[in-house]
Amino acid sequence: MGIKQISVFVENKTGRLAAVLEVLEKKQINIRAFDVSDSANIGIVRLILTDAELGLHELHQAGFTARIDPVAIVELPDVPGGLLRAVVKPLADAGINVDYLYAYTEPSTNKPIAVIKTEDIARAEKVLKQR
């Protein structure tokens, strides 16, 4: 199943993550999952939001550099080896490189969900469905 993810560019310094989150709070946009990737000087904040399009619009309005990308999401079996067998192994076997991956717990089902970014999302989704 595919979903839209918002990424925001921030400088790696005090208060910038707070500035991003304040925009979302002000517009009552809820965060389902998030992940931060950082280097010495910069960070990328990745967000799964209740309303991705609105989130992107508000972040742009607030002057942030941000973008929207498709990512794959997969429900994981909550057992040892669940992530390996449900996601990582099948993609590796199909020769698909994972750009990044993070996980959250879906409140309605209380099940873990993996968010996966690969070069070709459609192909990754096909592989994961076949499993």
């Binding site: 560019f9 990737s37 950082d38 742009h60 550099t65 941000a66 973008r67 750009d99």
Partner: peptide, 15 residues
């Protein structure tokens, strides 16, 4: 200054 067209969700692309 980074604008939308050079920003990526992948750190590797930015680097």
């Amino acid at each position: 200054e980074v604008n939308d067209s050079i920003f990526s969700d992948k750190m590797q692309t930015i680097e």
